[in-house]
């Protein structure tokens, strides 16, 4: 699904990622943990195609294609989805227009006809119910005036609509109370299939109680310094990151 080889990335001249290697197979869930400033969000953004990130070295292949050659929108349409750590408020762009345009762009790419208004509304209704999303939210502008929790739910709602092959959840748990966290996790798990993969970027182990990873990686100072099974997350929760730092020192 996704293979990252020796990926080095700089932002404004500063090297943030210093040689990432990662291999994600269909159906797998990978957790990327690590202290603040270790480069977790940079990894998510660079995979999603955010500009002003300078790739210094390395390769990323996604479904057999050179991911780094593709524009952000192409990556999205091929099935890569980033759930934003900080979803952007876009006043004046109605949620409904945004979702419809996004969904139909995806369908066009797959050679499908655009959804009719009725089909679209039905699909929205289903997914909204699944995520217990306030039905009024889709009458507003994109993320405008949403609470932190609503924004995160809205990300997963979009993911549920677009059904990506690879979802990158960038700190989707931060700022969520336990009920919202469960709903979000349910939404993610509902999409789980042998063809879909997930990268969960998080600080904390708690989300991983609900979205159970196959692998846990620790990102520290721009490198993956430790990889193991889901038990690593528990160990990190218990001991913090200091023991890893010490181990490396």
């Amino acid at each position: 699904m996704l293979t990252i080889k020796n990926l080095k990335v700089a932002v404004e001249g500063m090297e943030i990622l210093k040689g990432i290697n990662l291999d994600i197979k269909p159906g797998e869930v990978h957790a990327i943990m690590g202290p603040n400033g270790s480069g977790k969000s940079t990894l998510g953004n660079v995979l999603a195609g955010k500009e002003n990130y300078e790739v210094l070295e390395g390769e990323v292949s996604f479904l057999g294609e050179d991911l780094l050659e593709l524009a952000a929108e192409e990556r999205a349409k091929k099935g890569l989805f980033l759930s934003f750590q900080y979803p952007v408020e876009i006043p004046g762009v109605p949620m409904v227009n945004f979702l419809k345009t996004s969904l139909n762009e995806h369908r066009k790419y797959k050679g499908l006809e655009p959804l009719t208004a009725g089909e679209f509304l039905k699909l929205m209704r289903e997914k909204k119910e699944m995520l217990h999303l306030d039905s009024q939210l889709t009458n507003r502008s994109v993320n405008e005036g949403f609470s932190g929790g609503e924004k995160k739910k809205n990300e997963i709602f979009q993911m549920a609509l677009l059904e990506p092959k690879l979802a990158i959840l960038d700190e989707t748990d931060s700022g969520l109370d336990i009920d919202a966290l469960k709903i979000v996790a349910e939404g993610v798990n509902a999409l789980k299939s042998p063809e879909r993969s997930t990268i969960v970027i998080t600080h904390y182990q708690r989300l991983l109680d609900y979205i159970v990873p196959d692998f846990v990686h620790v990102l520290y100072k721009g490198r993956i310094v430790k990889s193991a099974g889901k038990e690593l997350a528990l160990e990190l929760e218990e001991k913090g990151y200091d023991w890893i730092k010490k181990e490396l020192a």
Partner: peptide
Amino acid sequence: DEEALFYLRARGINEPDA
């Protein structure tokens, strides 16, 4: 707003449309 532009593009909306 570049952040907003990226957000839209990351949902599959072409840059000119975004």
